[in-house]
């Protein structure tokens, strides 16, 4: 057993969609004003576009997720977190910015398959129709009874994240929603 274990690491289920828990992922919570000077410095440091509201930008193994009007979630390789926190410190000396390592706080799952939108619609009240939720969009809402983030990474691929304590619950709830025989045929496959 590795010393570093992501929640539900190795969990996998294969129903109407394929669901897998992702291995440890570097995550940094960033809270600050989204004014031009902060944007410019952040995009310069991260090499990522600044996401529009309710969207995410991604480049290679890095991504920047718009979480709220003053909060971003930076995704990067797990081992790069201490270095990135140090560089943030250097880049924003005495600026009003909160950067915290939250790599261990959330569990991420990858969902893939043509029934993706139908499966998600069983457990979230958020509108999963193509016109309301397009690749690149990020929606924070409910996954059954817990809070979750839904990031559509491609036409048939989503990254779903929840707090680690409920990773087991979320995995089970998603797996039940994806049980074969539960095809709905509401969203275009």
């Amino acid at each position: 057993m590795s010393e570093v274990m992501a929640p539900m690491q190795g969990a996998h289920s294969d129903g109407l969609v394929e669901i897998e828990a992702l291995p440890p992922l570097g995550q940094i919570a960033l809270r600050c004003e989204f004014s031009d000077d902060y944007r410019a410095k952040l995009t310069g440091l991260l090499g990522l576009g600044f996401p529009e509201p309710l969207k995410a930008t991604a480049e290679g193994e890095r991504a920047l997720l718009w979480m709220s009007p003053d909060e971003l979630l930076l995704l990067l390789p797990y081992d790069e977190v201490p270095g990135m926190l140090a560089r943030l410190e250097e880049t924003f000396p005495n600026w009003i910015l909160l950067a915290a390592d939250v790599s261990d706080m959330r569990a991420h799952f990858r969902l893939r398959g043509p029934h993706l939108r139908d499966v998600l619609s069983k457990i979230t009240p958020a509108d999963m129709a193509p016109g309301a939720f397009a690749p690149g969009d990020l929606r924070r809402s409910r996954l059954a009874q817990v809070a979750a983030g839904f990031w559509l990474r491609g036409p048939e691929e989503a990254q779903v994240f929840v707090f680690r304590s409920v990773a087991d619950y979320a995995f089970r709830a998603m797996s039940v929603a994806a049980e074969p025989g539960g095809e709905v045929g509401f969203h275009p496959a």
């Binding site: 509201p53 309710l54 709220s68 009007p69 009240p125 958020a126 809402s141 409910r142």
Partner: peptide, 11 residues
């Protein structure tokens, strides 16, 4: 008005 989502009461 903060994020632009039409949120259901359960959210």
């Amino acid at each position: 008005p903060c994020c632009g989502i039409d949120a259901a009461e359960i959210e």
